[in-house]
Amino acid sequence: MAAAVSLRDVHKRFGEVEVLKGVSFEVAPGEVVAIIGRSGSGKSTALRCVNRLETIQSGEIELCGRRVDDPALDLRALRRDVGMVFQSYNLFPHLTVAENITLAPRRVRRTPPAEARRIAEEVLTRVGLSDKIDAYPEQLSGGQQQRVAIARSLAMEPKVMLFDEVTSALDPHLTGEVLKVMETLAKGGMTMLVVTHEMAFARRVADRVIFMHTGKVWETGPGSMLADPQTPELKEFLANGL
C-alpha cells in the first residue's frame, strides 16, 4: 500500500542554520507514528513541512499521493487532506466553540449552516465536549480547548492528522484527557503523526517511534525500542527525560 506520508532526504534551512539534514521516513495509512527528540532536533519543523507551513530546500515530501514540495501544488486541496493540532491550541478567541469548528467547513466546503452545526455536534461528542458547543474558548480549560482544537480539525475529515506537542502546555491531569482522545482516534484507524514528549503515550499508542537528533532521524522502531535504546543519544535522551 502507498504511504500516507513520506519524506525523502528532506533538507530545510532557516537562514544559515540547517534544521533538517536529510530526513526520510514514511507513515502508512492507519499508522500512528510518534516523533520524539530534544528541543531543536527538528521534529516540529519536520511536521510543519508535511502540510507546508514550512517550505523545504530540497528533497521530496508526499502526502496522500500529492507532492507537497511541488511549487504549483494546490495548497488548499492539500490541507483538506491533513489536519493539524498545535501546542498553543490556537482556537479563534472571538468565535464560539461551534463557530471555531464550523468555520472551515462553511468557508472551504460551503457546508450549509445547519449541516455544519450537526458536524460540530458530532465531532464534539467524539472529544466528549458536546455540552460546550456554545461556549467561548476563554471559558474552557486548556485541556478542553485542546480537545476542541482536535474536534475542529476532525470536522474537515482529514485523512492524516499532525499533532505538534499538543500536551506540552497542559498539567498532567489535563494531558491525560487529551491523550485519551488521541488514543481513541488512533484506535479508530486515523493516520497520525505525533510530535510528543509523552514517552508513555509513544510507547503504548504509537505503532512506530522515530527519534530525531540534530536534524536527522537517529533511531526508529516500534514503541518497545524506548525500553531498549540502541544509540547512546537515545539512551541519554530517555535517561534525562525520566
Partner: peptide, 27 residues
C-alpha cells in the same frame, strides 16, 4: 493577532482573503 492563529487557519485550508476577514480583521 498571534501568528499561531493564522497558521491554524492555513492548516484548516482557509484562503488568504478568508483568513484576513475571519481570523485577523474581525478580532
Amino acid at each position: 493577532i498571534h501568528p499561531g492563529q493564522i497558521e491554524a487557519a492555513q492548516a484548516l485550508g482557509l484562503s488568504q482573503p478568508q483568513i484576513y476577514w475571519d481570523v485577523i480583521l474581525r478580532p
